[in-house]
């Protein structure tokens, strides 16, 4: 049984912000938090259950962006017309999370704040240049998701803040994208290595535009590979160029060895995953 705690059940965002300001730990879907509490890694004294907050559960759009509430689940992303139309890369990432049950409860906000280098919604969001919105009783601030991620399990979120939404520029209809994840099996597998790639591509000239590339599980945080993006933009993407660029992926990752894979294997897999992705996207 879970250790005793005080539970706060806010009826709106203001009450939730007051609760975190008083030191309560936020509970979204609970798929990370409850596991850690059950394993005895965490024993919060006070928990604020965000799950009823409708204002954080919506997927909206404006002219340029898709705005995802932090309580949007991976399953919501997979099912929503807005994300399928404008953020297919994120849909692909969310589709690989855990199992249907985990996708139906696990949220984007929880996935991001948990700050696992292997979080599957994060490489797509980073490759797309997503921003996060943080709120507290004192106001709101916005920053690039890339900057928000500070290390394994670490973010720049202050204890009195909630992640309230994620803002992502709409992809253009002509942009191609792929999220590729290597796990020990197809479902319920934590990423050993993953890559998210998107760009506009002209099959005539084989030139790409507006590229985004990010790797997961091969460094302390999910990181955008800006140097690889530059190479992608400069070169005519024929077979030779794709091989060359993919082989450079190892320079942009800084993996660890753990029970799932060795650092060297991860480095090799980064190159292979990127090669596969570039091959599929340019043929």
């Amino acid at each position: 049984m879970l250790k005793a705690f005080e539970l706060i059940r806010p009826s709106n965002l203001a009450e939730a912000l007051a609760a975190v300001a008083s030191g309560a730990t936020p509970l979204a879907g609970g798929t990370d938090l409850l596991v850690r509490m059950k394993k005895g890694m965490l024993a919060p004294k006070k928990i604020v259950d965000l799950s009823g907050l409708k204002e954080l559960s919506e997927i909206k759009e404006d002219e340029e962006n898709i705005i995802l509430g932090s309580l949007v689940t991976h399953g919501d992303v997979v099912d929503s017309e807005l994300t399928n139309n404008y953020l297919p890369l994120l849909v692909q990432g969310c589709r690989t999370v855990g199992s249907p049950q985990i996708r139906n409860t696990g949220t984007l906000g929880g996935n991001i704040v948990n700050a696992s280098p292997a979080a599957d919604s994060v490489p797509p969001l980073v490759a797309l240049g997503a921003k996060v919105v943080l709120s507290s009783v004192n106001g709101e601030r916005e920053m690039k998701l890339q900057e928000f991620l500070a290390g394994p399990g670490k973010t720049l979120k202050r204890p009195d803040e909630l992640l309230t939404s994620i803002v992502v520029k709409k992809m253009k209809p002509e942009e191609r994208c792929l999220y590729r994840k290597l796990g020990q099996r197809k479902s319920l597998a934590i990423s050993i290595a993953s890559v998210a790639v998107k760009f506009g591509f002209d099959p005539e000239t084989k030139k790409c535009s507006n590229p985004g590339v990010a790797f997961g599980a091969v460094g302390p945080v999910v990181r955008r590979a800006v140097e690889l993006e530059r190479l992608l933009e400069q070169k005519k993407l024929d077979q030779q160029a794709i091989k060359e660029i993919a082989s450079k992926a190892r320079e942009f990752c800084d993996p660890i060895s753990d029970i799932r894979a060795s650092a060297e294997y991860r480095r090799e897999m980064c190159c292979s995953l990127l090669y596969e992705a570039l091959y599929e996207l340019t043929c």
Binding site: L27, D49, G75, Q101
Partner: peptide, 16 residues
């Protein structure tokens, strides 16, 4: 109507 793992749902989360 959606499948979830009831071992990872806190009772307050089923409100309504």
């Amino acid at each position: 109507g959606k499948a979830v793992n009831s071992c990872l749902v806190l009772i307050s989360q089923v409100e309504g």
